[in-house]
Design a protein around this nucleic acid. Structure first.
Lengths: 232, 232
DNA sequence: TGCGATAAAACTGTATGCAGTTATTGTACA
DNA sequence: TGTACAATAACTGCATACAGTTTTATCGCA
């Protein structure tokens, strides 16, 4: 599968929650997929024109990106892209730190009533790993992590992690298509799930940290070190 | 010392880096000091008028705050304050997770050339703890943590932590005025510094995490549980 | 007196215009 | 040919104006 770069599409989704979010998501996708090289300057009016909107929502979207840390804005000069491999490495460390904290909370706060739903997700994941498509696995992955977050009652931490989501959908699809990666991820998810169910905070934190860090390495291999998986 | 609430001051600093940042900092301070209660709606035009600026920089500042997680904006209804004790508790957990990761990196990457400067800071802190003012201690605190961050070569992680700075200057001053707290902080900083110098990543991470979490409890006591320190 | 509907007021989201600053390009001089 | 300077062009930051939606207040009715 060739990872064709994302492009700025002018307002295709019918139901949008404000132009601001649309522009934000679009620019985010473009930056993370590598279309805009590190150091490239982002021209407000050009972006506004490409997307068919005014400069106002573009300004606001750029502020969001600035807060995300993906661009940095010099006072009167505009914003420049601020995303390279070193940046991605640190983002992965941050994800590991936050997500493992969430896992610890989940293990501390889990109740027996939560066990079946978590186990059901794990069963579903095991089935999908050998039988189903990458899209299904991506969805289940999302569901799993979101369930952990829910058990942890982690609102701020959850939002924080959402803002550090550096995996674009193309990369995710490629990764989830590799059988070896699927097996590794399953084993790790299983370890995390069992630790949470057992209420073992230490184990849950350690397992989640290991999982995020290893998955991050896989991502770095794919996107920055150009080592595509064997099945891609 | 009475912790008088911050108020919206219209443009006092002559040298400012854009009205946007000014408004952002002002609103941030006001929210963190508790002037605006959780759930309160923020009126763009009222803020703009109070600060003597247009609504445009206010809008952008609100987007920054939204990304900081201090407010959440409903599509056509405006933004409401989103900061209470539970939120602060999670922010402290996040700080502990990120800052301890930075400490681990610092211990891994420290070189013998870095030892004297770190030791000098610790010496300075020891002296200031018994002799000097709260302001000096606050400044040294900043220097210490920033030095650790520098050793760790943590750029993204550092920025991330800046975004989670929930201690307003009033609270900081009160905390750093309490002799017991000063002693505790000194011992912890010493443990962190020694672990980093020794290159002991595990110890540095653990020490930093313990420090941030304990200091966070002190903050929560002061701001949300209304237990002021004995010397305030 | 309580509830529902309608109308008015207010507020956000978006667009556009202008001023100040920065970056770039062209030219003159060494 | 390389460098410094100046003028032009472009871009950001800020202000203001307008349209659509939400909220609220008032009036009628049960």
């Amino acid at each position: 599968m060739s990872r064709d770069h994302a492009t700025l599409t002018p307002l295709e989704p019918q139901a949008f929650a404000g132009l601001r979010e649309h522009v934000h998501r679009a620019l985010r996708q473009v930056i993370l997929s590598g279309e805009y090289a590190p150091g490239a300057r982002l021209n407000e009016r050009a972006i506004a024109e490409q997307l068919g909107v005014s400069t106002t929502p573009v300004k606001e979207a750029l502020r969001l990106l600035e807060a995300d840390g993906l661009v940095c804005s010099k006072p009167r000069s505009g914003v420049i892209v601020n995303f390279d491999m070193a940046w991605a490495e640190e983002m992965i460390l941050a994800r590991a730190a936050i997500e493992s904290t969430i896992a610890r909370l989940a293990a501390q706060r889990v109740s027996t009533a939560d066990t079946p739903v978590l186990e059901a997700i794990l069963v579903e994941m095991r089935r999908a790993t050998s039988e189903s498509s990458a899209e299904d696995l991506m969805r289940l992955n999302e569901v799993f992590h979101r369930q952990i977050r829910s058990l942890a009652r982690a609102n701020y931490l959850g939002r924080l992690n959402d803002r550090q989501d550096l995996y674009d959908s193309d990369a995710r699809r490629v990764i989830h298509s590799d059988p070896a990666e699927r097996a590794r991820a399953l084993a790790e998810h299983d370890a995390i799930g069992r630790a949470v169910i057992a209420g073992d905070a230490e184990a849950a934190e350690a397992a989640m940290k290991a999982h995020v860090l290893r998955a991050g390495e896989t991502y770095l291999d794919l996107v920055f070190r150009n080592k595509e998986g064997p099945s891609s």
